[in-house]
Design a protein around this nucleic acid. Structure first.
Lengths: 157, 157
DNA sequence: ATCAGATATTTCAAGCTTGAAATAATTTCC
DNA sequence: GGAAATTATTTCAAGCTTGAAATATCTGAT
């Protein structure tokens, strides 16, 4: 909370606003690099893609069938997007659509047995990969990061 | 570097690996939410897109004309992608391609006067928007984040 | 001088992503 | 009970993104 309007402190010429921008650009860069790495890993090692993985991961975490809307809200993607990715996964037999009994507008999506088996393979390898990406971070870093990210996320409640 | 195989420490059941995964998922979520916010802002307020903004920002930062390869390397996107975004910006008169004198394989891309003027408008608003997104973070947070991100980025040198 | 390998860019097909429009079903409120 | 507003999903056109293949050019070793 160092307020220093005339910039006589340790950061002489850099406004807070510029610092925020720089941090955002760096954050975006690091995140994109990590995403690119994981995408490459999924393609080369498992012949799949990040969006497919994301959908399967969301379904896996819940275990209980999930509506298309819940899915797209959870993944922060548009409804139309969720539809097409699920379409492809369904065609490959990894995912199943079941119309809801209670609400005829709704469909419930869930992993098939094949999908579940494939995902468990995938998830183990993926976790190992993430582990490597974050290997330079200590436990203390995680505490701090968790706190910072929580505060950042507050905006988009 | 706390090695505690039997988990008798302060984090009883949670392995470091699981923590890394959770942190990555949260980081990805926050970054995507912020990106979505900025995309929405660019669309509604300036009738443009994030990739277009990214290209213009890269060209602006350098001032000196830039090859397509440098551009795609800087933005972490494929060559083909850079080509199509530049195509569209060029068609809109915001960007210019000039063949290199020294190397006939190379084209140099730069902002046109129109592009420069438009970008300066855009950049000011964009900075204000980022400022809002990060308003909950203190100066101390930035110091820490900078350090953490630097260590994370080391992998993808 | 030539040729093999490296580098710069574009093109291409396929998949991803969006926001808006279309359809269908449900809920709310009079 | 029925009209109006809301919600769930799909479809659509346009743009984004990728990796691989095609072209063109350059560089370096012989």
């Amino acid at each position: 909370m160092t307020t220093d309007p005339d910039m006589h402190g340790t950061q002489p010429q850099v406004s807070l606003s510029k610092r925020r921008l720089k941090t955002w650009i760096r954050l975006l860069g690091v995140t994109r690099a990590a995403e690119a790495h994981l995408r490459e890993f999924l393609r080369v090692e498992h012949d799949t893609t990040l969006p497919r993985f994301d959908v399967m991961a969301a379904l896996y975490r819940r275990r209980v069938p999930m509506s298309m809307s819940e899915l797209s809200r959870m993944l922060l993607v548009s409804n139309g997007n969720a539809t097409t990715v699920v379409d492809r996964l369904e065609k490959d037999g990894l995912v199943r659509r079941v119309p809801s009994e209670a609400d005829r507008r709704t469909v419930h999506v869930s992993l098939t047995d094949t999908g579940l088996a494939q995902f468990e393979q995938l998830a183990a390898d993926h976790e190992r990969e993430v582990d490597m990406l974050f290997s330079r971070l200590t436990d203390a870093d995680f505490d701090i990061l968790k706190d910072i990210l929580k505060r950042m996320g507050k905006d988009s409640q």
